[in-house]
Amino acid sequence: MYALTLTAELNGVTNLRPKDTADSPFWYTFTVQCTSCRETHGNPISVSRFESNELSGSRGEANFVWKCKNCKRESSCSIKTTPKAYEQNEPPKQQPIIEFDCRGMEFTSFSPEGEWLVDGLESNTKFEGIDSLTEGEWYDYDEKAGDEVSIKDLKWDIKRA
C-alpha cells in the first residue's frame, strides 16, 4: 500500500481536493518503476478510480495494469480510498490524499495534473477549475472575504502505508 501525501501552505482556503467524480474522473499521474527489474516506465502513467482493467490469468481487476517491457512481468495498481481533502493548517502538515495498492510496481513521483477544487476558509466560496498546481502555486481573490487567497509550497510525497 502506498499513500499519496501533500504538504502545502493554504492561505484563505481549505479542503484542497481533486475534482474526482464519475462524470469527471481525475487521472492521478505518476512515474512508475518495476519492483522486479527496477526499470522505470518511459512515460508517466495515469490512474483513475473509475477505470477497471482485467488482470491476465486471473478473474481479478485493477485500476491500472502494466507489463514491464524489460522483464515482461505484469504489475497492477488499485485505488483503495476515495480522495481526502487537504485541510488548512498552521504550520502546514503532511496529510494523506489517497491510497493505492500496488503489486509489482512502485510510484517514484507524482504530477498534480488535472482539475482541483478548494473552499474559502471563512467565506465558503467555491473555487473550481484550478489546473495550475503543476506550477507549484495558485493565486486568486475571494470576493466575499475581500482578500487574496493562495496555495503555495506544495510538497507531494509517496509513502508506504
Rank of each mutant, 00 (worst) to 15 (best):
W27S: 15
Y28N: 07
Y28D: 02
Y28I: 06
Y28H: 06
Y28L: 07
T29Y: 04
T29A: 14
F30E: 06
Q33C: 10
Q33M: 12
Q33R: 12
C34W: 00
T35N: 12
T35K: 13
S36L: 07
R38F: 08
E39P: 01
E39R: 07
T40Q: 14
G42W: 02
G42E: 08
N43W: 08
N43T: 12
P44K: 15
P44T: 15
I45Y: 04
I45S: 10
S46W: 00
S46T: 08
S46N: 10
V47N: 05
V47A: 13
S48Q: 04
S48R: 07
R49G: 15
E51R: 11
E51W: 01
E51S: 13
S52T: 15
N53E: 13
L55S: 07
S56A: 11
S56I: 03
S56L: 05
G57R: 05
G57N: 10
G57W: 00
G57D: 06
S58T: 13
S58D: 04
R59S: 12
E61N: 14
E61K: 15
A62F: 00
A62N: 01
N63T: 12
N63D: 12
N63S: 12
F64W: 03
F64V: 05
F64T: 05
V65I: 08
V65K: 02
W66M: 06
W66C: 09
K67G: 09
K67Y: 01
K67M: 07
K67L: 02
C68P: 01
K69C: 04
K69L: 05
K69A: 09
K69M: 03
N70H: 08
C71N: 07
C71Y: 02
K72Y: 05
K72H: 10
K72R: 10
K72S: 14
K72W: 03
E74C: 08
S75R: 03
S75A: 15
S76K: 06
S76N: 04
S76C: 06
C77F: 00
C77L: 04
C77T: 02
S78C: 03
I79C: 05
I79S: 03
I79A: 03
I79Y: 01
K80H: 01
K80F: 00
K80A: 09
T81D: 08
P83G: 11
K84D: 02
A85T: 13
A85R: 12
Y86W: 04
Y86K: 09
Y86T: 12
N89K: 14
N89S: 14
E90T: 15
E90H: 12
E90M: 11
P91F: 05
P91K: 09
P92Y: 03
P92T: 09
K93A: 11
Q94S: 11
Q94P: 01
